[in-house]
Simulated scan of single mutants.
Amino acid sequence: MKAVLCKAFGPAETLVLEEIASPEAKKNEVLLEVHAAGVNFPDTLIIEGKYQFKPPFPFSPGGEASGVVTAVGEKVSHLKVGDRVMALTGWGSFAEEVAVPGYNVMPIPASMDFASAAAFGMTYGTSMHALKQRANLQPGETLLVLGASGGVGLAAVEIGKAMGAKVIAAASSAEKLDVAKAAGADELINYSESNLKDEVKRLTGGQGADVIYDPVGGDLFDAAIRSIAWNGRLLVVGFASGRIPELPVNLALLKGAAVVGVFWGAFAQRQPQDNAANFQQLFAWHAEGKLKPLVSQTYPLAQAAEAIDMLGQRKAVGKVVVQVR
């Protein structure tokens, strides 16, 4: 099979496409014929040795995939050969085949195509877990989404609306905000042109945002914590800006606020039943047309490095997908 390989830590341009042996499914795994693979921010980190997991060389990046099950390990009972599925792989999805633990594989609805499925699992799974389990977002509350045109940001906008929140989308350009508006955002903030804290206060009548969804970190985190409401919850989702911020904890004290970590991958493994329930709700909203994954660009497998590089430069809107088949 063909696979995109990382043989030494470095930039995306050092990845190579090679023919390697197909994997075999262990007792607790399924073998997946990959049709599409989502590109996510961790892919930009794992190839440079900056992610919390460092696979042995050579490895293929790609943390999520969609495709068809071609073999099932004897300890896997909820899947069968021929099932159309999405999978959380950690790495290995930028290849024609990948072996995945059964608990990380989920059937997809017949109405969902492979590209949408590859764009769905990680972003919507992360944002649903963040807003439901970690923030306990309530109808009528105000949700501020930073990086609102990216994969997880757009998912947070849509899920926030589905949960009955007022959604303020914040992004760095008018073009990106147009995408967030189309996804259902009620209010927009261009933080490259205006002060985030002042705009949030203006749009909330001075109250601040009840829940803040932050996949960006850096200077935006610093501004966001200062625009949080009493009893607000700031969700730490990621650090796309490149800088991990430090928190003056008196700011949390003054607002009775909570700064809450979001690690969906660990949640999915530790609380599989809760994760499955989340996806049943997500699939229902998808069927109702409330969730519409935006796949802005697709790349063939041979150009997976370009897809990773585009995401790393924060040029992507919505989700970028590698079309394997």
Rank of each mutant, 00 (worst) to 15 (best):
I47F: 09
I47H: 13
I47M: 12
E48R: 15
E48D: 06
E48I: 05
E48L: 14
E48T: 15
E48K: 15
G49R: 14
G49W: 11
G49E: 14
G49Y: 13
K50C: 15
K50G: 15
K50Q: 14
K50Y: 08
K50I: 11
K50V: 09
K50N: 15
K50T: 11
Y51F: 06
Y51N: 07
Y51L: 12
Y51K: 10
Y51I: 13
Q52V: 09
Q52Y: 02
Q52T: 08
Q52H: 04
F53G: 00
K54I: 02
K54Y: 01
K54R: 01
K54E: 02
K54D: 01
P55H: 11
P55T: 04
P56E: 09
P56F: 04
P56L: 12
F57V: 12
F57M: 15
F57I: 12
F57N: 09
F57S: 01
P58H: 10
P58T: 09
P58G: 14
F59L: 08
F59P: 08
F59G: 02
F59K: 06
F59H: 11
S60C: 11
S60N: 03
S60V: 05
S60E: 07
P61Y: 00
P61S: 07
P61L: 09
P61F: 03
G62C: 03
G63F: 08
G63D: 05
G63E: 13
G63S: 15
G63L: 14
E64Y: 05
E64R: 03
A65R: 09
A65S: 13
S66G: 09
S66L: 04
G67Y: 14
G67P: 15
G67L: 09
G67R: 14
G67S: 11
V68Q: 05
V68A: 01
V68N: 06
V69L: 11
V69D: 06
V69M: 12
V69F: 10
V69A: 12
T70K: 14
A71C: 02
A71I: 00
A71Y: 00
A71Q: 04
V72K: 00
G73Q: 00
G73R: 05
G73V: 02
G73T: 01
E74F: 00
K75L: 14
K75G: 08
K75W: 03
K75M: 03
V76E: 08
V76W: 07
V76Q: 05
V76L: 05
V76Y: 06
V76T: 10
